[in-house]
Amino acid sequence: MEVKYAKTKGLTDKPLTYCPGCTHGIVHKLVAEALDELGLLGEAVGIASVGCSVFSYEFFNCDMQQAPHGRACAEATGIKRVRPDLTVFTYQGDGDLASIGIAETIHAANRGENITVIFINNAIYGMTGGQMAPTTLIGQRTTTSQGGRTLAQHGNPIKISEIFAQIEGVAYLERVATFNPKQVLNAKKAIKKAFTYQKEKRGFTMIEVLSTCPVNWGMTPIDALEWVKTSMTPIYPLGLFKDKGDFHE
């Protein structure tokens, strides 16, 4: 019997604190597997942000820093500028990255900081109990948009990949999803590519992962996967947004 799939050593043995069926766990595995398979675990420093993934410093089996809400890309900049030999990544949700931390993120991208951003877009604030996120869809009910988000009241959901694709310093940017095994494998490929680009000093890399929040969406984990596919992907189309081959240095 040959082992085809086993828990990656890129994750610690600490049980994940996520709700049942939350795809944060899948993305954690992908990041950890990518770092392990590329031989980068020993030189990796991750930034845990504020949100459901705040405890990711206990899960990724590498050095970690925990950042104030929204500031992950500033932290990553600080680390990378004094230790360019390290592989630096942030793991941020949509509240952290697209709302309170959009300035830090967009300027890190614009400087072409040679870091990798893993951006989890699940269209809601999970940790605080299901409030509206900047990425919440029009009509989507949350605890702060109880009749559904309206255009008049809160504007359209913000499309991070579309915005960041226009930034010169971005070397690689792809939006992926985790709603079936094929998408998961594709997401892993993208994450590996991002880390490879960082290793090659090509500049800022970001992977936006459409993710689920079954509990706060009020769905079963399986229905939540389906909702990503049918409701989120029309607003947030999957695919490659930027792939700049030329070198950063």
Binding site: K4, P15, G25, K29
Partner: peptide
């Protein structure tokens, strides 16, 4: 031994082996 179950498992519960 397709490992789809393990790939989708958020909590790394499943190990999959295949016979050669």
């Amino acid at each position: 031994g397709c490992a789809f179950c393990a790939i989708m498992c958020p909590d790394s519960v499943i190990t999959v082996g295949v016979e050669k």
